[in-house]
Structures are given as structure tokens and as C-alpha cells.
Design a protein around this nucleic acid. Sequence first.
RNA 1: GUGGCUGUAGCUCAAUGGUAGAGCUCCGGUUUGUGGUACCGGCUGUUGCGGGUUCGAGCCCCGUCAGCCACCCCA
Length: 421
Amino acid sequence: MKPLPGFRDLFPEDFARRIYLVNRWRETARRYGFVEFDGPTLESAELYRKKNSGGEILGQLYEFTDKGDRPVALRPEVTPTLARMVAERHRDYPKPLRWFNVGTCFRYERQQRGRLREFLQFNCDLLGDASSASDAEVVALLIDLLRSFGLTHKEFVIRLSNRQAWYEFLGGHGVEKERAGDFLNIVDKMEREPAEKTEEKLVPFGISLASLREFLECSKIPSLDPLLADLEARGLRDFVRPDLGVVRGLAYYTGIVFEAFALQGNLRAIAGGGRYDRLLKDLSDGSADLPAVGFGVGDAVLLELINEIPAAKVQEEAALKADAPTQLYLVIAAEERRLSALSLAQQLRSAGWRVAFSLGAERVGKQFGAAEVYGAAYAVVIGAEWPRVKVKRLADRHEEELMEGELLAWLQENRNLKAEI
RNA sequence: GUGGCUGUAGCUCAAUGGUAGAGCUCCGGUUUGUGGUACCGGCUGUUGCGGGUUCGAGCCCCGUCAGCCACCCCA
């Protein structure tokens, strides 16, 4: 039996990587004053059918009827849940809200590298502020997030755009606002389609491919200036690149939109987001009307990316090694001292050390081998000389003998080998 | 959902249409208080599944399922 297509078994080594990811997500979000929330994984299917929410995502909904005949769906993203929750209780919280979520999402689509049917997503949203200051805060958070994995501006770039600029462009060409969505769809796809096709699709808009290209290539996007100045002041300007070609597929974006892209390899967008000032109002039938900006990152793409960038891989491996599941391995050299070893193990564990030992009588050599395999930094030999014990640093085979009662203090002094993650 | 490629032991792979193998991993051992090497031994397969062609199919054909890649779109 294998897991369903697009679903994963997470064995301990896989889960260790997940912990590594999630620790960085949380740590970065908290550095920006964000608080964590979560909602149900299963929602009423209706939530995703409301105006302006899903779009393309609706076709990928994991949807069924529960035993109470309710139409339900596994969440394909958390934003609608967030909107629902915020609409319900936003009066309880001071504005702006800085909320983040680490949660499982589901989309029924064909799986591929970096794209699964069940995945973990990190979402950050800043609600209640419509200024570019909050745009910058969220973009900066995303940059720092990717940097926390050892990625630099050589490995990724945030392509930054603003839908307002397009609305102005369209207004200048006499195109009514209702058709903006269709038009942006053409822009979204023109990178991947032959020029002739784009040209053809532009005809009904009365816009030539040449003028579209000219607009695309004009590096000046005045509406992005405050955001860029903000990022410049933070020293993060190198990580972003204004690019009107990014418009994103989702229907609900109203202002800036951005995508984090890997510069090497052929991975898709690592993360994406933007401003959605009307979504909360639309999803809550007007009961909450908060401007918002946010982004999402998926675990699968990030894990692939780390594998491809040597520096990021090295950092991850170092972190995983430092977080070894076993720090101390008790070698019970004389079986009749097992009870002493148990007492010592308890004492060490109470002090927070990760301790393991063999559960039955075993050759000393084998026990050392086990200490090695489990990644322990030290082996503690308990034998006939008790209450004296030997502590051996496995890395360089340096061994010291001390009284059992001194061990804890000795270890505290050498605590640099204890996990810090 | 569309198209292409692939599918042999837990993993990586081999086997001119003629009795399915190797390496790695794992487990045990190399005489009983010191570890990643070396050596010895052991376990594991209805060759993804179901049909068909053939005296005979891991190999050829069809279907199906799964994986990978591209499209679609996104995290």
C-alpha cells in the first residue's frame, strides 16, 4: 500500500526537514511581530464559491458531501478561512493585524515536482492597513524568510508589480474596468505564448503588441516608488525587481502583486502574494471591510529549492545535525550497573539532554556503534568503576573520566554541542 | 484534464524472447569494556497490475494504475 497520489508519507528524516522549514517560518514571522493562528482544514464548500474568492482554484477543490449531507471541501488555501475568522472577530484585535499560519492545504490536481495534492503552506497576512508601508513590511518578511534558508539575491528575486499601473494603462486606452481581468490574463500568459497568439488576443482591446511591450519595458512604475524606497532603507532593494509582467492568476488582487522566483533551475514561483483590499468585504458580505496584503509559500517548492542550492543544503544539513535526536548515548559496559545507568539517564533527561541507551545487554563495541549511528555527540561509559564514569566526545575520541555527580555540570560547560535550532 | 517517457529486491540498477542477478541498506558474526573502514554469513521478488502474441514474455502488443517531464495553473 502506498499513499494516494500527491500525498506523502513523512518518515523521520522527512519530518526533520519539515521541522527545519517550519521553525524558520515561525521564527521569521515572529521577528516581524506576527502571531500564529489556524482554522479548520475542512470548510463548507460554500466558502470557496463566494464571489471573488477562488477562480481557477475551484476546479481543484477536494469536495464531497459529509454524512450530514453538507457540501464540504478541504481547504485549498487559508485566505478564505482567514477572512472568515477576521470578519467574525476583528473587533477584538487592535489594527493592523499581523497574522500568520502554517497549515495543510489540498488541491486536486496532477502532481509534479514541487506540486502535490496535500502540502504545507506558510501564509502571512497584514490586515487593516492600505498603505505601501504594509506592502513593504510583507515583502521584507518574505525576503528575510528566504534569506533564513541561506538563499541570497543571487538565488532568488521578488518580481514586483502593481495592478493599479495596468488599470491606468487600460484607462488610457479606453478599456473599461470590467474587461481588465481578461486583459491581465493575456499579460500573465504572454511570457509563455508565441507573440502571434498574444497579438491576436489583443485585437478586441484595440491595443497593439508593440504598445503593450513598450509599457512592459518602461522601468518606471511610479506607484511602486514608495515601496521601493521603503525596501531601500531596509537594505533590501537588491532583492526586488519591478516587473509589470507579473500579474498573477488569482482574481482578487487589487494592488501590488509579487512573486518570488528562483534564478537558477526551472522551478516555478517559490512564493506569491499581493494586496487584496476587497476580499474580506466580499467574503463576509460586508460585515468586515479591511484592506489586506499577504503571501503564501509552499513547503514542496522550498524543499526542492534547498536541495538545488548548495549553500542552502549545507545550512540545512548543519541544522539537522545539530538537532540530532540523540545527544548522549549511555554505554552500559557492565550489565550489573544498568540500574545506575537508568538513574543517570533520568537525571540527564530531566536536565533537558536527549539520552538513549541500549535496551538489553550488548557488546560495548556495538553500543559505541549505536551512539555513532544515532548521531550522539558524547558517549558516557557506565561500568565497574562506577560512580566514576567516562565521557567520550565521539567527534575526536577525546575521553575524560569524572565522578557521576559531576557529569551534568561538565556537560553544561560543554553545552555548545547541545542542539540550538 | 491533455501529451511524451518510465515501472525488475527496502534503495540504485543489470539480465541477445529461453531457469531473475549485483551493489548498497538492514540483521547477525569476526571469542566476551571502546565507534564510522575491512572480512564472513543471512533476509527480501507472483519483474506495478490485468489481458494478448509465442513452444516459451522482465523483454513484443493492448489496457490499467503509479511515477517523472511538458502543457494548464499554482505553493
